[in-house]
Design a protein around this nucleic acid. Structure first.
Length: 485
RNA sequence: GCUCCCAUCGUCCAACGGUCAGGGCAACUGAUUUUCACUCAGAAGACGUCAGUUCAAUUCUGACUGGGAGUACCA
């Protein structure tokens, strides 16, 4: 009754992510979400967001909402979730509380699980001893007479329910991405299914909910591989068919360890605040463990959906390389989004960061000049200070450039002041004739102007900068720089 | 310790028995330019080791080594 899951093509695909609301919305959740969303989308199925909040101790109140917001930001909005509801709700495990006890007791009744009365201290001792001898913990309560155990329960004893894992044989885990994985049952300990507080553990809740919600494909991180035999055993104990399993590689730090807060920004909110584009983020995540068959580096969700195949995922743990993400984000700014999109989205970003700049032609002109010079939005203000204030910093190199050419400045200012039209072409001509008259190269004339006007030697094309700033500001700045310090 | 997973340039991937082992990012060198970028061009850079199978192994098998994950009344 519980043989192969072998993906029957007619079965509707239902996928899910089941994060626990214990902190910041994690990039790993987004990563796994991308694949689950895509798989469901490809098959015209459903993608569910279920909140696994069975650990009351680690619960972070607004975490659930932030996870949902992250998924929306990325464009991976689930079909069903605690915030939207759906036919399979509730989608918060804490709200399904009663369910798990019933199912756990059903297993006790059928002999597939048992009440266990060991205290935390006893377990620690047992575990230490077991490890010293190189085998898995044996829980004494397993040997208790079922009748006696039930009596103790009726008398109000505190207990957990544990899975009675067979002593012999092996449990085979099928995984779309690798060969069948064999676990010796003697190596699997009797996992707790229902905690003393009545809440289920992940193992129980996960299997029960996946079953009840009709989940057909369990695509999750590799860290779950070793607990999958427990899940398989549970499906069998309940007499339910297994879903299709696929364990994705873990995102890694540069040192190859599992990606962590200490060594990488792991909160998707951080990327949002830095001004990364969700489409770049998604594109980047898609290339972790997978590449486009035609070698495309830049592609969107729709294209990903068109060509992605689970079987093509590679299993080496991909290092999360911020440099590549940065490049990709810059690529989107320069080549994928239109000028207008960039301006509008940058403006929205700045607003979200509490910087009020008008979305006008001036702003658009600055954005256009800066687009090839930034990779993420957070760099924008740092590089454009002199466009927004007269009180911009002047760095050392700029000071020097001004000092070296201070005598030229007054004349330059006056010529610019008297130009019939103040546009890039006229300014260029003015510089040209001035340089010629002075017997100087343009390379002697333009740097001090740049320094005066921007306070830095690194800026967009000077002529465009001048035209954008406008005659008034430019002349004033050059005159100000001309005055000895 | 035990169990399990993984293994191509620094990094992300391609090549799925026969190729000078290919591309992207990063780093490097040039070109262009009024600076910085962008862009373009170029060079550099890898099959972990040892067996076995085969006419032929990066590719298949095994061992080893290395890396990773799990080992909770956390998920």
């Amino acid at each position: 009754m519980s043989d192969q899951p072998s993906s029957a093509p007619t079965r509707p695909v239902v996928t899910r992510i089941a994060p626990s609301p214990t902190g910041d919305p994690h990039v790993g959740t987004a990563y796994i979400g991308l694949f689950n969303y895509t798989l469901a989308q490809q098959a015209g199925g459903k993608f569910i967001l279920r909140i696994e909040d069975t650990d009351r101790n680690r619960l972070v109140p607004d975490s659930e909402k932030r996870i949902f917001t992250m998924m929306q930001w990325l464009g991976l909005t689930p079909d069903e979730s605690p915030l939207q509801g759906g036919p399979n709700g509730p989608y918060r495990q804490s709200e399904r509380f009663d369910l798990y006890g019933d199912y756990a007791r059903q297993l006790v009744a059928s002999g597939a699980a048992y009440y266990a009365f060991e205290t935390a201290e006893e377990l620690t001792a047992l575990r230490d001893a077991a490890q010293a001898e190189g085998h898995v913990i044996a829980v004494p309560s397993r040997e208790l007479d079922a009748q006696d155990a039930q009596q103790r329960m009726d008398a109000g004893a505190e207990a957990v329910i544990r899975l009675k894992v067979p002593h012999d044989g092996e449990t085979l885990v099928s995984d779309v991405l690798r060969k069948p994985i064999a676990f010796q049952n003697r190596e699997i300990d009797d996992k707790v299914l229902l905690k003393a507080d009545g809440y289920p553990t992940y193992h129980l809740a996960n299997v029960v909910d996946d079953r009840l919600m009709g989940v057909t494909h369990v695509v999750r991180a590799e860290e779950w591989i070793t607990s999958t035999p427990i899940h398989v055993l549970l499906y069998r104990a309940f007499g339910w068919p297994e879903p299709v399993f696929a364990h994705m590689p873990l995102l890694r730090n540069a040192d190859k360890s599992k990606i962590s807060k200490r060594k990488n920004p792991t909160s998707v909110e951080w990327y949002q605040q830095q001004g990364y584009l969700p489409e770049a983020m998604l594109n980047f995540l898609a290339t972790m463990g997978w590449t486009h068959p035609d070698g495309l580096e830049v592609f969107g969700l729709a294209e990903f959906q068109r060509v992605f195949r689970l079987e093509d995922v590679t299993l080496g743990g991909p290092v999360f390389d911020l440099a590549k993400l940065n490049w990709l984000n810059g690529k989107y700014l320069r080549e994928v989004l239109s000028e207008d999109d960039v301006a509008r989205r940058l403006h929205a970003y700045l607003q979200s960061q509490k910087h009020e700049l008008p979305l006008d032609d001036y702003f658009r002109a600055v954005v256009k000049m800066l687009t090839p010079r930034i990779e993420v939005f957070s760099e924008f203000l740092d590089k454009t200070g002199y466009f927004w204030t007269e009180d911009y910093p002047v760095n050392e190199k700029a000071h020097k450039a001004i000092d070296d050419a201070r005598l030229l400045l007054p004349e330059l200012a006056s010529r610019l002041k008297n130009l019939p039209t103040f546009d890039a072409a006229s300014i260029k001509e003015a510089f040209g004739t001035f340089a010629e008259e002075q017997g100087l190269k343009l390379g002697k004339v333009m740097p001090p102007v740049r320094a005066a006007v921007a306070g830095t030697m690194e800026s967009p094309d000077l002529l465009s900068v001048l035209e954008t700033l406008g005659r008034e500001r430019v002349v004033a700045r050059i005159e100000r720089a001309a005055r000895p310090a």
